[in-house]
């Protein structure tokens, strides 16, 4: 899921804070505050262990409904307004869409990795090398999923094609599963280190393009 704030989640957090005894505005008032003001209130909740525990429990309840195909936007909206406070239908729709998009991300990534394996095999992987291609698919999947989970920019087919082309080129020149494995491990390590460093710094220093450049460099054996 994107890390951007959703109003519905913020209001749930504020409700949790109130339940925990924090001095926070009532929900109808919190609902009309500016985004910045509401974010500062949710930060107070995040800093209070008791409030955080209640918040997580309420989030679970909300997410169960977000992930339940039986809950339409209208049903969710009706439930939310009754349980918490009046909110726009579109705010609920956005939270639901973000949750469902995140849920389908792994399926999309898996399909991309499977497509790579199929393409590589069609391109002439012999029996001995098939294990290496499957392995490459496995590592590609883990790498792509990691990148998508870190919420880099929205899916761009050109980016994926670039990675697959680079991997295909390496496969053709590598010709040895051991070399392929070693390079892929290096690629994954480099890309993950870049993303992890970003996360540790608490900010986005790398764009998706930067990460793909790192991948390209690693593919060419230039990784640090």
């Amino acid at each position: 899921m994107g890390r951007q704030c959703h109003k519905a989640y913020e209001l749930i957090a504020i409700a949790a804070g109130r339940q925990a005894g924090l001095e926070l505005p009532e929900l109808p008032r919190a609902a009309v505050l500016t985004d910045t003001a509401r974010a500062s209130l949710t930060a107070l909740v995040a800093d209070c262990p008791a409030a955080r525990e209640i918040r997580d429990r309420l989030y679970e309840e909300f997410e169960r409904r977000l992930g339940d195909p039986g809950y339409t936007v209208d049903l969710l909206w009706e439930w939310f307004c009754g349980e918490y406070t009046a909110i726009s239908r579109s705010a609920i729709g956005r939270a639901r869409e973000a949750y469902r998009a995140a849920a389908s991300r792994i399926e999309q990534t898996a399909a991309e990795a499977r497509a790579f394996v199929a393409l590589a095999k069609e391109a002439g992987a012999d029996a001995m090398f098939e294990g290496g291609v499957t392995r490459a698919g496995q590592l590609l999947f883990e790498l792509l999923y990691k990148l998508k989970s870190e919420d880099l920019q929205a899916e761009n087919p050109a980016d994926l094609a670039k990675v697959i082309r680079a991997m295909g080129a390496m496969w053709k020149t590598g010709k040895e599963a051991a070399l392929l494995d070693s390079r892929l491990a290096e690629v994954r390590k480099t890309a993950r280190a870049a993303v992890d460093a970003e996360a540790a710094a608490g900010k986005r220093q790398y764009t998706r393009e930067d990460v793909y450049r790192l991948i390209d460099d690693a593919m060419k054996g230039k990784a640090a």
């Binding site: 989030y59 997410e63 792994i106």
Partner: peptide
């Protein structure tokens, strides 16, 4: 890592 990344679907 992939199992853990699956939790990014959630806010908890």
């Amino acid at each position: 890592g992939a199992v853990r990344d699956g939790f990014r679907i959630s806010r908890i």
